[in-house]
Nucleic acid binder design. Structure first.
Lengths: 188, 188, 188, 188
DNA sequence: AATGAATGAGAGTTCATTCAT
DNA sequence: AATGAATGAACTCTCATTCAT
């Protein structure tokens, strides 16, 4: 197993632990055990627990950002984006959980806060661009190309990372969002 | 200081600690110190850390539920509710943080999950009732009285408990929500 | 309840706790709870845990010493003594347990060691006197009136306070002792 | 120092602590300090205090059982056994104390009770066999080959683990036991 | 005579981190 | 590159004791 593979395995294990036990329950020994290596080996790859967490942040950000890439014909990109995010959070609920954990932690971690701010900003600009394309293409009313709409879209998607509402609520709110955007509701 | 006051002081201190350091950083000694009592005194009031956390759950739920009570004339109740929640989370950002922490923790704590499920259910029914009143009163189009709309409203409000978006984004998304609901945007 | 009765109730409760959990598990709060009084009340009667233990020592010694008093006709006193001790330990196994606990503790408690030394000495002299009477009365061979025999008798009886051997072993050893002493074996 | 040596050192230190302070006064930190390691190191070898105590049980049982092995010509084995046990308890009084502590604890610890029951049973059978050999060899009257005699022998020896009687009493009772068994009294 | 409230000291246990090998 | 062994610091929780009432 290459050095990089092992690094990734450790990060992935830490990711899983955070998803299942929260930062509250994250134990480096558990992470090492999950990968089947000694705790000292973990510290060989990541000098501190914090460094390991940085690795998890990078992993989560990368996974999420790869979903943001516009896909499909311009006319469909907005609807595809909503569906892609919903599918991501449904198929990989751990990612949503970890991102929510990171969001809460960012209040005490300026470096993390900056990273999330950048990602959120990029996401906002992406959604805004999708709105613009949809308006331009005649698929959306012109009043829907605004920061406020982008923020609302993102708000609904972000709320899906918290388990409070439940999966059904997530579907309902997303459906309504699509109605407000004038998109035919998703059915998958 | 009465026994009940001290209990409340301890719960409040734990609440503050969770808001500032997360469950990850909650330390009973810190809670006791914040109230100015010995750690043994804390255990005199709450036999275990978990019991103290239960106290925090009760406090958070009570604070939040007291905001749900409809206020103002029926025609204004929906708009008032949105504003009340936004104001609550703006004036008391700790409550939002704690509730998000609780939401994440509920994935590992069935008892807590049940409590949140109940509160969310109650909230949903409340919003749904407000929508119905608004439709009945002619302030809202009839298609807006649905579980989907209630879920969307709640989703936007819930997203405000996570710091990821930032205060500005919260305002934007709420303003757009009010537009979609046909309510004049809040200005305070 | 008179002051003295309450004192006695506390001592008895402590006695029971020692018998059931050993000094290892003796908790003043548990003692107070067993009597139904506040822990502070216990400290009103016994300023320290050690003082309470002294009370238990007195109680145990008194109970045991009252068994030592010769009973029956001189010819039967030796056999009666053996039977009385055996019956005491069978009917009140807690007393044996507590006395063994005290014996072990005496290694670290000179005051207690002195008390046990006195009691043991008194017991030894008592048994020795019983042996002498039996010899004088012609019920025992003259070689059985000695410190060695008294010590052996007491050794067998003391061993019955430890649960290691089991009740059957206690009966067996006592029966053999009676044989060696030329007493008809006990049958009850 | 090998891993096994350190384990043994910790067990031996715990053994010493129990002998000197009883289970009542057994403190893991003290045990670690006696060996000169950190308290966390102790928990590296023994996850819990109870596991450490199990180690002490094993040590005590092994030490005691190794004394039970018959030694010398068959004609002398019984006398040698008595002398060996007496010498063991005299030279290593801690072993007697620890075994008495274990005996008392066995009342609250079924696992320990089973271990002691086994050891006592084995001891009983051993003594019984020695009695049989002595009778067969003509060194003992035939009536002395019985469970009752074995039980009496063991009772006298067990009583020596309790300090109540004192060393002199132990010698006296053992001497008398040897007389009853028809063995010339020990003189060492 | 009795108690509720409070505490200092210390218990067993955990955990991220280090270091010699 | 990897590990077994070790640790300092800190954690939750306990307990005998005190004190104002």
């Amino acid at each position: 197993m290459s050095k990089d593979d092992r690094r990734q395995a450790l990060v992935q294990a830490a990711f899983n632990e955070i998803a299942e036990r929260g930062f509250e329950g994250l134990r480096t020994r558990e992470v090492a055990a999950e990968v089947g290596v000694n705790i000292a080996t973990l510290h060989y790859y990541f000098p501190t627990k914090e460094a390991l967490i940085r690795g998890v942040v990078d992993l989560a950000m990368e996974r999420f950002r790869s979903t943001l890439a516009p896909a499909g014909s311009p006319a469909d990109q907005l609807r595809n984006h909503l569906r892609a995010v919903r599918r991501l959070l449904r198929d990989e609920p751990r990612l949503g959980t970890v991102m929510a954990e990171l969001a809460l932690r960012s209040a005490r971690d300026p470096g993390l806060a900056e990273i999330l701010r950048e990602t959120t900003g990029y996401w906002h600009r992406t959604v805004r661009a999708l709105l613009r394309h949809a308006v331009t293409g005649g698929n959306l009313g012109p009043d829907l190309d605004s920061d406020d709409v982008a923020a609302a879209v993102i708000a609904v998607l972000i709320s899906m990372t918290l388990p409070a509402a439940g999966a059904d609520r997530a579907d309902q709110s997303l459906r309504q969002l699509e109605r407000w955007l004038g998109l035919p509701p998703a059915t998958d």
